[in-house]
């Protein structure tokens, strides 16, 4: 973990620039501002692309090398399957963690 102050600076910058600013943007600016249609369309793909870019490496890499037979990927598959069989919000977490522990 980096030092204490860097961490707090990180929180503040994420909070201001990456969370509050996009949320408040148009609500605060009001109807004076608008975004081009093309940009709005492209922006719709940003969360999906970003979440996948963050989570996939964590699931398929073991010690920096691709290894698809690892407990994390097993846990991930179990969690995704759980979302398909029930709408219970706890089930994916229970199934994913249980698979991780069993396969380890």
């Amino acid at each position: 973990m980096s030092d204490e102050w860097t961490l707090w600076l990180t929180f503040i910058l994420i909070g201001l620039l990456a969370t509050t600013l996009p949320r408040a943007s148009f609500i605060v600016l009001g109807e004076r501002a608008s975004l081009p249609e093309v940009l709005l369309k492209a922006l719709r793909y940003a969360p999906a692309a970003a979440l996948a870019a963050i989570v996939v490496p964590d699931l398929v890499l073991v010690g920096g090398a691709v290894d698809v037979f690892n407990p994390k990927l097993g846990g991930a598959i179990a969690a995704v399957l759980a979302t398909q069989v029930s709408r219970n919000p706890w089930l994916p977490f229970a199934a994913g963690m249980a698979a991780l522990w069993v396969l380890r």
Binding site: T10, A18, P22, I27
Partner: peptide, 18 residues
Amino acid sequence: LIVATALVVNLRFVIFSA
């Protein structure tokens, strides 16, 4: 990079805000 990643994840809020 940390801040930019968080921003990208949150870009949907720009659309909601609009």
